[in-house]
């Protein structure tokens, strides 16, 4: 398995970000009101989000990256 160069760079960025998680600005519990606003939930309708990704995967070469576990299809 040979990793593409771009993917390797992103993987390095991933590790750096994950390791530096504790150094981000501390957000206290009482400061999380905006994060808890319903508009911060990207996809409030789960069925729609899944259907959209299925449609794209049937019409484009790239599929996945957002969640695991979808089955294949004989889509034309």
């Amino acid at each position: 398995m040979i990793l593409p160069k771009q993917f390797t760079l992103i993987a390095i960025a991933f590790v750096v970000l994950a390791c530096s998680g504790c150094s981000y600005q501390k957000v206290q519990a009482w400061e999380r009101g905006n994060l808890a606003n319903p508009v911060m939930l990207r996809d409030s309708n789960a069925s729609q989000a899944i259907l959209e990704q299925h449609t794209y995967s049937a019409k484009e070469s790239t599929a996945g990256g957002y969640s695991t576990g979808a089955g294949g299809c004989g889509c034309n």
């Binding site: 009101g33 994060l35 808890a36 911060m40 939930l41």
Partner: peptide, 9 residues
């Protein structure tokens, strides 16, 4: 609700 949205976001 608050936790749901926070965790979801």
């Amino acid at each position: 609700d608050a936790l749901k949205a926070l965790m979801g976001a």
